[in-house]
Design a protein around this nucleic acid. Structure first.
Lengths: 199, 199
DNA sequence: AGGTAAACACACCGGTCGGTATACTATCAA
DNA sequence: TTGATAGTATACCGACCGGTGTGTTTACCT
């Protein structure tokens, strides 16, 4: 039988997941074969299938792990600020830092969503969940600002966020996150958000 | 020898390109094999290779054709309006219409960019060119509005545009383009753009 | 009548895909 | 001591991948 659940990964399984994550992200989920992963992780295919069961599940594990890392990172950056408006701005500063560090190929969820066209593939749900989570995050951040039409504002911020990733990735606009951050501040002002930074 | 250049496509080649476009877009470039395309187009693989030379070139032909359709569509919608601000707003209305009609799987260029991880694949350049074209379009549309910081505003509009596609595709926000349009209007106002709609 | 282009049919190539089977070894806890 | 557990190595499977070769048929142009 294989693991798949949250039982702590064996050392070999951890290596597999690390290597697979790197390869899946940098080259794409469909392009990378199981044999390559096994080779790079110094492990036999048998071990991978013993631990993860199938490629589909390994892909899901990769997406879940990356999603978790991103959420933890973003959450910590948001919580480092008090005022609602500062928190919203912090999401774009966090995005900027994240993209500089480890987003060479754009958003892993968006890329996976593009690659996994079969609607039954469970990896699609992982990507959707992340975006729904981000949408909800913006809603909860917008609410206490007293901005008008808060739901539309939250969706707009979400779009700016996702658009910045795409623009940076394919158009090569390196300061996309910065531009998005300034646009977000302008929008908050336009929606009448009141915060300590307002005058 | 095979065609590849802009010589008018033979009837069989046209059928191949139509079928390939549908399959490439709806299922992904890497997932669809040449045999399936040949089958669905009622054509032998030999014919495809005689006309297009390789899968890589067929993919490029698909991207070029789709890009052209989109540019023609967007250009016509923009030119239907006179005032600069109306033209900018028209891009988001056009996006809304386009997404309702034929964007079930998001932006073909962004998806292809995600799938074609090999930087040497010429399909990547096609995607990049479209986004650069769109960026330039927004720049030329923003310039005559007299808005402050026009380049940043153009990039912001680009991000809203791309973000709306992603948000609608993976998050399922069906009115994403509408929300983006309203945000664009607010941003134009915030940048002090003057137009017939201003008061 | 002859030539050329565009299809057809079909067999075939080396290689890779995800996944399985068998057998053996090292570690460690009951 | 025994018996899982986790790992190794290797061979194998059918299916499919992108791509090619040989030869035939159809239709239009000169």
């Amino acid at each position: 039988m294989h693991t798949v659940e949250q039982r702590p990964l064996t050392p070999a399984a951890r290596r597999v997941l690390e290597v697979a994550s790197e390869l899946f992200y940098s080259r794409g989920v469909n392009v990378v074969g199981m044999e390559l992963i096994a080779e790079e992780a110094g492990v036999t295919k048998k071990t991978i299938y013993d631990r993860f069961g199938s490629k589909q599940r390994l892909v899901v594990a990769y997406l879940r792990a990356r999603d978790l890392r991103w959420r933890d990172f973003l959450t910590s950056r948001v919580e480092a600020h008090g005022p609602p408006i500062d928190r919203i701005v912090a999401t774009f500063a966090a995005l900027e830092e994240w993209m500089d560090r480890e987003n060479e190929r754009g958003c892993a969820m968006v890329n996976a969503y593009a690659e996994l066209s079969d609607p039954r593939h469970p990896g699609r749900a992982v990507a959707q969940e992340q975006k729904h989570w981000l949408r909800d995050l913006y809603r909860t951040l917008v609410a206490p600002t007293g901005a008008g039409d808060p739901d539309a504002l939250a969706d707009t911020l979400l779009m700016l966020h996702e658009g910045a990733v795409v623009a940076r990735n394919v158009t090569g606009i390196t300061d996309a996150a910065l531009t998005a951050k300034e646009a977000a501040q302008a929008l908050l002002r336009a929606h009448g958000a009141d915060g300590p930074d307002q005058r």
